[in-house]
């Protein structure tokens, strides 16, 4: 069973260096030990205060900064481990794309058909994880107009895309639904049709 980077009693006895926040292989993910592993090696104290790479209490700025940078690296590593986004390409080549997630899926699938009937073709990207993998950035780069469809007032997915991928907000059309009912295909098709009309005018 894969329990991640767990250091065993054998590892500790063989002299492997253990530091709870020590990045030994550059991915930002440090080894851990399970409580009770070894009588004299590998115990550590998990604490909210700042600590050094060996999990010792520290108020040194350099230790804090190192740990923060390791966490950033860990966050980047996570991009390769979360489920990738799924792309569905339109039958006809198009400059329009839509990004969505979760329970918006059934409505957007139907909206895509409604829009196609109006001659508006859409490539779809269903985001399944965060931090975003490289496929999300590539999808945005390969479309002239991208709509972010979601069910909250503030456009939270759109904000994440803007902040994390440094995308110009003007490149991401906002399609948000927040009246308390589930988003409908009719709503999405109407909103995207209006935005595309604006985009091409």
């Amino acid at each position: 069973m894969d329990r991640g980077k767990v250091m065993t009693a054998e590892d500790l006895n063989s002299g492997k260096l253990f530091g709870r926040y020590l990045d030994v292989d550059g991915d930002g993910i440090a080894y851990r030990t399970l409580p009770g592993t070894h009588p004299s090696k590998g115990a550590f104290f998990t604490r909210g205060t700042s600590k050094d790479r060996m999990a010792r209490y520290s108020e040194e700025g350099a230790d804090y900064q190192e740990n923060m940078e390791r966490l950033l690296k860990k966050h980047h590593t996570a991009r390769t481990m979360v489920p990738p986004a799924i792309e569905r390409t339109s039958e006809k080549p198009t400059r329009f794309g839509a990004i969505y997630y979760g329970s918006t899926s059934p409505a957007i699938n139907e909206a895509e058909l409604l829009l196609a009937e109006q001659g508006i073709h859409l490539d779809l990207l269903r985001v399944r994880g965060f931090p975003f993998g490289p496929e999300v950035e590539a999808f945005i780069a390969s479309h002239d107009h991208v709509f972010v469809v979601e069910q909250n007032r503030d456009g939270q997915l759109r904000s994440l895309l803007v902040n994390e991928l440094e995308i110009d907000p003007k490149r991401l059309g906002k399609v948000v639904h927040y009246d308390g009912t589930p988003i409908s295909a009719r709503f999405i098709a109407g909103a995207i049709a209006a935005l595309t009309a604006k985009a091409v005018s």
């Binding site: 409580p35 009770g36 070894h38 009588p39 004299s40 115990a43 104290f45 998990t46 604490r47």
Partner: peptide, 27 residues
Amino acid sequence: HRIAKLSGIGCSSKTPTYFLGASHGFN
């Protein structure tokens, strides 16, 4: 090493640092 020591926040909860150094701890 077969003891797990856990605490919350406060003066009291600082104390697990001061005993059982060979135990896993969680603040």
